[in-house]
């Protein structure tokens, strides 16, 4: 079953310098139980897209789409009350920095309790207390009973992220959006959080959107991947095929600039020259044209449309073979 469908999603912001288009022509879908990886550099629109899915964009944002539906609900027509039902209930989110995402003034128990109170009003106080404890056990917090009364500053980064995950899965969400969930953590802790997410996904049958700039993490835990650049999806498909055989020059450049994908130290790392285009004055043609090593004359004049071949979606005039 398809859980989430976005067709031709566009996100604009009203700014003092006029309207800028942060995300345009983005189409993707997430099936039940599936993990979708989203990669790209800062400012490519990864987080903004997720914020739109959660209805968390600021007031100056304009979101339009041909379709944006989650579990049969049209997200574009929701009012604030409707959003509140979905957010935290059917859709959970984990943020990058666990230390800053928890409320420092409330204990672990109070914070998880709040989620349950709002989204599962039928539960009694005792049921909630029981549920909170079992959630902490689920996410692998040692000595969970003692942790109930702990404040966020008493927890390490990995523990805070586990509490965040416990909050996100408290109401058995159908979709979990994990926005760089391990970026702020040490590798050993990262590994454990990834294993935890995988286990929870298998247990609860959740779908996960996993956003990261770290391709080596994404390649190990996702089956499908989409690469974003300047607010567009430029390549998407099966993770394995894309990593082993990227067809978009940007994807290739991104992979080549990571040291672990190189064999010897004497290789000069490939680096993508130039900078991401200014969203106030987007190039007329392909957004990546200024930095591309494979560009031809017409790349700067015509904007490539999405093409689909087998499982792979591509936005490029001259894909690599």
């Amino acid at each position: 079953m398809t859980l989430l469908v976005a067709k031709n999603l566009q996100i604009q912001f009203k700014t003092k310098k006029g309207i800028i288009t942060a995300v345009r022509d983005v189409s993707f879908s997430v099936e039940s139980g599936e993990t979708l990886g989203v990669v790209g550099e800062s400012g490519c629109g990864k987080s903004i897209t997720n914020m739109a899915l959660m209805g968390l964009l600021p007031d100056n944002a304009i979101v339009t789409a041909d379709t944006l539906s989650f579990n049969g609900v049209d997200l574009l027509s929701l009012n604030e009350k409707g959003w509140q039902d979905i957010r935290g209930g059917q859709m959970g989110m984990i943020f990058q920095d666990p230390m800053n995402s928890l409320n420092p003034c409330y204990t672990v128990e109070q914070q998880i309790n709040e989620v349950l109170e709002i989204h599962c009003p039928e539960m009694t106080k005792e049921q909630r207390a029981e549920k909170i404890l079992s959630l902490l056990v689920d996410v692998g917090i040692p000595a969970p009973k003692e942790r109930l009364s702990a404040y966020p500053h008493e927890l390490s980064g990995g523990m805070s992220q586990r509490v965040m995950i416990a909050m996100a899965i408290a109401c058995n969400p159908k979709l979990l959006i994990a926005d760089e969930p391990t970026t702020a953590l040490d590798v050993t802790v990262q590994q454990q959080i990834l294993e935890l997410l995988e286990k929870l996904q298998n247990d609860h049958g959740m779908s996960v959107i996993f956003v990261s700039h770290d391709l080596s993490v994404v390649k190990d835990i996702t089956k499908k991947i989409q690469v974003m650049y300047a607010g567009e999806i430029i390549e998407s498909g099966i993770t394995k095929t894309i990593i082993s055989n990227p067809e978009h020059p940007y994807t290739k450049g991104l992979l080549d600039s990571i040291p672990s994908f190189h064999d010897t130290k004497d290789d000069v790392l490939f680096s993508i020259p130039g900078l991401v285009p200014d969203l106030h004055s987007r190039p007329k043609g392909c957004q990546f044209e200024g930095r591309c090593f494979n560009k031809k004359d017409d790349c700067s004049s015509s904007w490539p449309t999405i093409t689909q071949k087998d499982d792979r979606v591509l936005r490029c005039h001259y894909p690599l073979k």
């Binding site: 550099e41 700039h213 391709l215 450049g253 991104l254 080549d256 600039s257 040291p259």
Partner: peptide
């Protein structure tokens, strides 16, 4: 830094 920029800096350092 982002990976593509990271690569530029690593190359520069080498």
């Amino acid at each position: 830094l982002d990976v593509s920029v990271q690569a530029q800096i690593l190359n520069l350092l080498k």
